[in-house]
């Protein structure tokens, strides 16, 4: 009797180990079967500002060679009745799909000027309306400049006859929790055997301002612009990490930059709640 008990327990334990191991690498629920699934695409969009270049609020023409960000723990949610990030609350959802786990570095400036948003991953997911999204900005694995950074900008800034080659590292680990994508179309509605998209959008005009908007426009009032950074350049080169910026910018400009970086993450035009884990 005792021997049988040990045998049964051993078999059960092995079964559990096998089942437990089989779920590793697939954290997504698969409760409704293949016939009720579709493919959920995660895309990142730096908008025209990043791909085409733009004029800052203080008249610098910016063109990017590289806009690296690292994102991780990206999760799409189905929330009954929608999720309001302005309420600074947590998401309650019965279907949550982890699209990216470990940090993944993306160059938002890649592709042609009119390129589509960058596809990061595509996962099988249960049908439904993915109307909330969260992700973390994590440190980039890059040694272009000293220090740790979550955003790396490389490009040129031109004004009148002056041209500055810059490499800037911003370090601000952030978690964004967002509601539904807000834009020309609706995104995230996944039908069986179809493809839907969820989008992380990054508004770099929040950092540099927009030369096409009025000076007293909110976007320009809250942006740092490029001039405070240009003032730190040695001749035609500017290579600064986050510590350098903290030490050399005025406290007001540094705070403005910090706030602007926190406000980068959006879902289209939809805002997100921001925390610093």
């Amino acid at each position: 009797m005792r021997l049988n008990l040990i045998k049964s327990n051993t078999i059960l334990l092995i079964s559990l180990l096998v089942v437990g191991c089989s779920r590793q690498g697939n954290t997504n629920p698969d409760v409704e079967g293949v016939e009720s699934q579709g493919s959920l695409s995660l895309v990142a969009n730096g908008e025209d500002f990043v791909r085409e270049g733009f004029v800052t609020k203080d008249g610098w023409q910016i063109n990017f060679e590289r806009v690296d960000i690292a994102v991780g723990e990206v999760t799409a949610y189905q929330v009954e009745g929608g999720f309001n990030p302005e309420a600074k609350s947590q998401i309650k959802s019965e279907t949550a799909i982890r699209l990216v786990q470990e940090a993944q570095t993306i160059n938002l400036a890649q592709g042609e000027e009119d390129a589509d948003p960058i596809v990061i991953t595509q996962s099988k997911a249960p049908k439904g309306f993915y109307n909330a999204l969260s992700w973390k900005m994590l440190p980039i694995t890059d040694q272009s400049i000293a220090g740790s950074h979550t955003i790396l900008l490389e490009g040129t800034a031109t004004k009148a006859k002056r041209k500055i080659n810059f490499v800037l590292g911003f370090n601000q680990p952030t978690k964004y929790v967002c509601g539904e994508f807000v834009g020309d179309s609706r995104k995230g509605l996944l039908q069986p055997n179809d493809i839907a998209e969820v989008e992380m959008t990054f508004h770099f005009d929040h950092i540099f301002g927009d030369g096409e908007a009025d000076a007293d426009d909110e976007i320009n009032q809250n942006a740092v612009g490029f001039q405070p950074l240009a003032d730190l350049a040695t001749s035609d080169t500017l290579e600064l990490g986050w510590q350098d910026l903290e030490q050399n910018l005025s406290p007001e400009e540094y705070q403005k930059l910090t706030n602007a970086i926190a406000g980068l993450g959006h879902v289209g035009e939809g805002h997100c709640s921001v925390t610093h884990p």
Partner: peptide, 10 residues
């Protein structure tokens, strides 16, 4: 008003 105090599900 719609429920806004939500709990993390994951």
């Amino acid at each position: 008003k719609p429920e806004i105090d939500r709990v993390e599900l994951l």
